[in-house]
Design a protein around this nucleic acid. Structure first.
Lengths: 380, 380
DNA sequence: CGACATTAGTTCAATGGCTGAACAAATCTC
DNA sequence: GAGATTTGTTCAGCCATTGAACTAATGTCG
């Protein structure tokens, strides 16, 4: 470790404290919380202000002693562009450093059977609109991130079954913007992490397939190659229904959107919530079976990973009312530690927006985690 | 981060490089590998030598240029005492900084129904013998670690079903020695990590129960409270055999030692290997069924955690010959990524010794990870 | 109302630790 | 034996943090 990395570390430390504070925080309090001296904090804050990452707040604290000048995250300079290519829609969003959503758009557009190149082309227009909207608000977008429903490693999609993609090399930029790529469920979990007060949970993403993001102590667990969280292919019944992955009895065959819809004899999954509310027998039975299967798979997951909470996201979120009871019953029975510490189950806070917001958040979070690199990149 | 923590970080960085090198490594090469200057590395090595953590090697490299003086881990000063309290035996071992096993002892002693206090008393004698053996070799034992087959958190055993323990507070010392406590499977995985060349794997511990340790990028994944890895209670068949944990169809009911032995109609599990070698039909069938169940549970685990390898430890290690084929068949079918990257399955290198060695290793590894703290503790 | 307590922020010399260049040491090659 | 090569040391310089003294701005209380 070099000497300059000490400063890099402390820049990150201070910026993290500013980001974690809901209200403007004084340099004196930063010093107290970080263990640094007030002198050091002042020089570091000066550097962050010069780089446009934080700003002084207008109001100052009132009370005994000299009033403090609050420090907040800058609302304008580095923003993040999040994008999502999913089976039947494209989505974009822009968030600022503070995590505020400043622009959002969803374009219904079926990607099944389309080539990756066609998807990039389709994404170009909403991405350009997002950048324009950001510019209109004085935001400078630093870079972008794209969420995809597939297994991604080193800028290659190994497979994205529901898009029909296979071994697709990903572009380094969309337009002029540097972009990164990530798995849909992982990014949704990342988005949810910053929107709810939980710091460890399993985020279950119910889209056409079922994925999951594992968050432990506020960090995403990615596994060796970033492919952790394939909950949809956890075995629920070894001799069960064949799955298109080649296995049998995968969770997806019992709790996937298509499986629930078919078992409820519905032509369109969008009707599920209404039918369930209306008390439709077949729908309720189908949801009960899905909840049971989810309960079995989640129990195994919790036993393996020791997670205190499960967040139901994507299409599962609005169905939580009917899915939670059977899931909870299975967890109570099957989780070894449930007797004295039962896992919490609840719907996602962000719902369908979790994925794009999470993608955009990776951009801003990378800056917050390593401000020195960002500062070096904007003026060498 | 303070200024002194820069030195602390670099002490660890240099010591880690020394520990990672199989042969003595020169200060010049440490400088090259660490990015520090030769000057800095020299002062840091001086400090480590003064603290007794490393030593200069006797021989020096021959070749063009000034011969280098190698640096190695010191073989004497801080050693670790590992202990294991298991269902039917107690074990102790002493390892030095370099990871060499310098003493080992196993005492057959049934702990079922004995109180925790009785277990500590039984452990005192072998622990004292280990300390004496260490002293006779000039080793200074720094502290100890005890492996237990149960769920442990903050020096409390929540439950250790096979020992019959429940909510047991653990002592901070055994004799005069500071001790720490850990889960048997986790510590075995930790031991195996340093004995094999894999850096990411699932260690499956087949004792009376079935546990697992999850290792990702050379780090143990502990979950939120340290209870990750309860593989034995992953559901293999939702409507299957009832388990004493209160659930149904747990892996332990199909692949636990008792389950395999009973299905093979054997009075003693020790005969399993001989019977299998002799080609006994019932034994082979029982092992086949166990392998299948293991395959199902491991497939789900690999899908969730993205692990490239599975190590069969404990009683599974000598049975690997018969367990591997059905496990591999299931993994090929059920692991989503198996088509292009099939997980490796293999028996443990350390076998039954993995757990105690892993426990002892936590002591020495803690010193290697934070030498500054150790140095401060031995002379304030 | 004014002295004092209190809290925030700045200044500056001192310190700890790393760097880089020059140098000394030990070996090999030709 | 001269030169090339590599290792390790010495030392001045630099960078970031520290700690104490100082200034600044407010509230409190007699």
């Amino acid at each position: 470790m070099r000497q300059t990395s000490l400063r890099a570390h402390n820049l990150a430390l201070v910026l993290r404290l500013v980001a974690a504070s809901p209200t403007p925080i004084s340099r004196a309090r930063i010093a107290g919380a970080s263990g640094l001296t007030r002198a050091t904090v002042s020089t570091i804050v000066d550097e962050l202000i010069a780089g446009g990452l934080v700003d002084f707040a207008d109001e100052s604290r009132t009370g005994v002693g000299r009033p403090s000048v609050g420090v907040t995250l800058a609302g304008t300079r580095p923003a993040g562009l999040g994008m999502e290519v999913n089976v039947d829609y494209l989505a974009t969003c822009v968030i600022d450093l503070a995590g505020q959503v400043r622009h959002r758009e969803v374009v219904l557009s079926d990607q099944r059977g389309r080539s990756p190149a066609a998807a990039w082309e389709a994404l170009a227009a909403p991405a350009a609109r997002a950048l324009a909207a950001a510019a209109a608000q004085g935001l400078v977008v630093h870079s972008g991130a794209v969420a995809l429903p597939g297994l991604i490693e080193d800028a290659v999609v190994h497979v994205a079954p529901n898009l029909g993609w296979h071994r697709v090399a990903l572009p380094a930029r969309i337009g002029d913007l540097l972009v990164d790529f990530g798995n849909e469920a992982n990014l949704a979990a990342f988005g949810e992490l910053h929107a709810c007060e939980l710091s460890s949970f399993l985020y279950v993403s119910g889209e056409i397939g079922i994925g999951a993001g594992i968050v432990v102590n506020s960090e995403l667990f990615r596994g060796t190659r970033g492919w952790a969280g394939e909950l949809g292919h956890v075995t629920v019944d070894p001799a069960g229904k064949p799955c298109r992955c080649g296995s049998r009895g995968c969770l997806e065959q019992y709790a996937g959107e298509d499986a629930i819809r078919e078992a409820a004899s519905l032509p369109d999954a969008a009707e599920l919530v209404d039918r369930a509310k209306a008390g439709d027998e077949a729908t309720l039975a189908s949801l009960g079976r899905a909840g049971l299967a989810l309960g079995v798979a989640l129990s195994s997951t919790v036993n393996l990973l020791d997670l205190p909470a499960v967040v139901l996201g994507g299409h599962f979120a609005p169905l939580a009312e009917w899915l939670c009871p059977p899931i909870e019953a299975e967890l109570r029975q099957r989780v070894l530690t449930a007797r004295w510490s039962s896992p919490l189950i609840r719907p996602s806070v962000l719902g369908a927006e979790a994925t794009v917001i999470g993608a955009a958040r990776t951009v801003t979070q990378a800056i917050i985690n390593d401000p020195a690199r960002y500062l070096a990149s904007i003026r060498p």
